[in-house]
Amino acid sequence: MTEDIEQTAENTTVELGIEFCGEWFYPTPGQSFSIGRDADLVIDTNPYLHRRLLEIESAQDLWWLSNTGRSISVALATADGAYQAMLGPGTRVPLVFPELIVMFTAGAFTYEFTIRNDAARFTGRDAAGDGDDTDGGTTIGAVPLTVSQRQLLIALCEPILRGGMMGSSQIPTSAAAAQRLGWPLTTFNRKLDNVCDKFDREGVQGLRGGAGKLATNRRARLVEHAILSRLVTAADLPLLDEATKIAR
C-alpha cells in the first residue's frame, strides 16, 4: 500500500512541461528549475532581466511557481483568459491549471511562455466560478471600449499579435504607436490615460501613474492584460489598418 501511495504522488508531479519559442523543457521532481537570464531556462541576455526571475519546484504533491526576482511582477492567465493573476516578487502559486500562459516585461521587451500540466486539478472555468481571489487571481469581465481605444490597444500589442506569441516582443514606444495610428502624440497620450484609467477602475493592477511608475511599465502592463485576457487578438489587426487609412 505504501508503495502505491508513493507511486501516485510521483505521477502527479511528473507531467509538467514548459514551452518557450517552440522548445520544451521538463522540470525534474525534487529539483528546482530556474527561469531567467542565467538559469536552467535562459529567456534572454537582456540586462534588465533578473538572472533568476522564476523558479518551479514540486512540493506537497503539487508543482509551484515562485517569483524569485526583486522588482519584476509576472502576469499569469489561463489559455482562455478567464483567470488572471499577478505574481509579485517573493510570492508563489500552485500550478493547478492544464495550461498557464506566463508573461513579464524587462526593459522594452515582453516575454511569454506556456506551462502545461497534465496532472492539473482545475480548469479556468473552475477558478472563475468560485469567487476566491486570495492568491491575487481575478476573473475578467467584458470592459466596453470605443473604437479608438481598441485601436490603441492593437497598436501597442501589434508586435505580439503578428509574431504569434513566439517568445519575446518589443513594446512600441508611445511615439511609435502614435505614428502607426497616424495620431498626434498628444492625442495618443490622452487616449492612453483614458484606457489606463478605465482598466484601473476595473481593478487591473500596474496602470496607475505615480512615483516609480514609468510610462514604459504602464504600457507593458496594458499589453500583458490585453493579450492574456484576449481583449485583442490577431483577428483585430485589420482595425489598426483602418485607423491608418483614415488618418491619411
Rank of each mutant, 00 (worst) to 15 (best):
A128C: 10
A128K: 03
A128H: 05
A128Y: 05
A128T: 02
A128Q: 10
G129H: 09
G129C: 07
G129P: 01
D130Q: 07
G131I: 00
G131D: 13
D132F: 13
D132Q: 09
D133C: 09
T134F: 14
T134A: 14
D135Q: 08
D135C: 10
D135K: 02
G136H: 08
G136W: 08
G136F: 08
G137K: 03
G137F: 03
T138P: 01
T138M: 11
T139V: 07
I140Y: 11
G141I: 01
G141L: 05
G141E: 13
G141M: 03
A142I: 07
A142S: 13
V143Y: 13
V143L: 15
V143S: 12
V143F: 13
P144V: 00
P144K: 04
P144Q: 06
P144A: 11
P144F: 05
L145A: 10
T146N: 04
T146L: 12
T146W: 05
T146F: 07
V147C: 05
V147I: 04
V147K: 01
V147A: 12
S148V: 05
S148N: 11
S148W: 00
Q149R: 09
Q149I: 01
R150Y: 01
R150D: 03
Q151P: 09
Q151R: 13
Q151V: 01
Q151T: 00
L152S: 08
L152N: 07
L152V: 00
L152H: 06
L152Y: 07
L153T: 02
L153G: 10
L153Q: 09
L153P: 13
L153R: 06
L153H: 09
I154V: 15
I154Y: 10
A155N: 09
A155P: 10
A155W: 06
A155Q: 06
L156Y: 06
L156Q: 04
L156K: 02
L156R: 02
C157A: 15
C157L: 03
C157W: 03
E158L: 11
I160H: 14
I160D: 15
I160K: 06
L161R: 03
L161I: 00
R162T: 11
R162Q: 14
R162C: 08
R162H: 04
G163F: 07
G163Y: 08
G164L: 04
G164R: 01
G164C: 05
G164D: 04
G164H: 03
G164F: 05
M165K: 11
M165E: 14
M165F: 15
M165G: 12
M165S: 15
